[in-house]
Design a protein around this nucleic acid. Structure first.
Length: 234
DNA sequence: GCGACAG
DNA sequence: ATCTTGTCGC
């Protein structure tokens, strides 16, 4: 199975593939010290199948931008909750392959193992790219948790079927929490610690935040949507 | 059957 | 995710 084949999968086949990948998940601690971290994200125009992917590289823990890569491609796989990876991973992998140097760990915008089949986009990407990943999501997909306190870095464990699958983290006071979970090749504790070290005054961790700014920038610059003010619909 | 539902 | 201005709270 190759990411380029995802578009031909039916949702049922995609789920079957997730069950296969699940057997390969490994969230033992990363022993190598982190020197380089990266954030990845996707952007696209409403009603368009053109996907803009980007990855931003940072030194760690000082978080200075040291590189980036982008990729533009089409996706035909629709957005289906629980199957996000089949829509976004192909483009992200293109950007990943263009990267001159690979990071010690990659932060994805979405869940890691905090997924019903433990296959959020961060876990999925980590498994096929054979690289350490962390999932940092803006909203919950699966799991029960108590609302964390309002102090910065207050956190609360997320459980599913009696299993610890993630942590709801108050990255900023007066803001909704973000949901952290290991993708692959990183432990739960390390994932939370690393993300905490990446908060720079905003709710969203810097790697993801910068990747988001980058992909929106290349999307706007592409001019793909320049004639939309005259669209009869919408 | 009903509610939930990453981006 | 994207479309979008103002506006309420700290």
């Amino acid at each position: 199975m190759q990411p380029s084949d995802y578009e031909s999968l039916t949702p049922t086949q995609a789920i079957a593939y997730q069950h296969e990948l699940r057997k390969l998940i490994n969230i033992t601690p990363l022993d190598k010290p982190i020197k380089v971290i990266a954030g990845a994200d996707i952007s696209f125009n409403k009603y368009s199948d053109i996907v803009y992917a980007g990855i931003v590289l940072f030194s760690y823990p000082d978080l200075k931008i040291i590189g980036q890569s982008t990729a533009i491609s089409k996706t035909t796989f629709p957005y289906i909750s629980g199957l996000l990876a089949f829509r976004e991973v192909p483009a992200l992998l293109d950007a990943w392959n263009k990267l001159s140097d690979k990071p010690d760990v990659l932060v994805l915008d979405g869940q890691g193992i905090a997924h019903k089949r433990r296959l959020g986009i961060a876990t999925h990407f980590g498994l096929i790219a054979h690289t350490p990943t962390i999932g940092s999501a803006k909203s919950r997909l699966t799991g029960k948790y108590e609302e964390p306190g309002d102090e910065q870095f207050a956190q609360s464990p997320m459980y599913d079927k009696g299993e610890l699958i993630g942590v709801a983290l108050r990255s900023k006071k007066k803001c909704n929490p973000i949901y952290i979970s290991p993708g692959n090749m990183v432990s739960m504790e390390q994932s939370v610690e690393i993300i905490k070290n990446c908060i720079r005054g905003y709710r969203i961790p810097e790697p993801t935040r910068q990747a988001h700014l980058l992909v929106n920038k290349i999307r706007i610059e592409s001019g793909e949507n320049n004639n939309m003010q005259f669209n009869l619909f919408d």
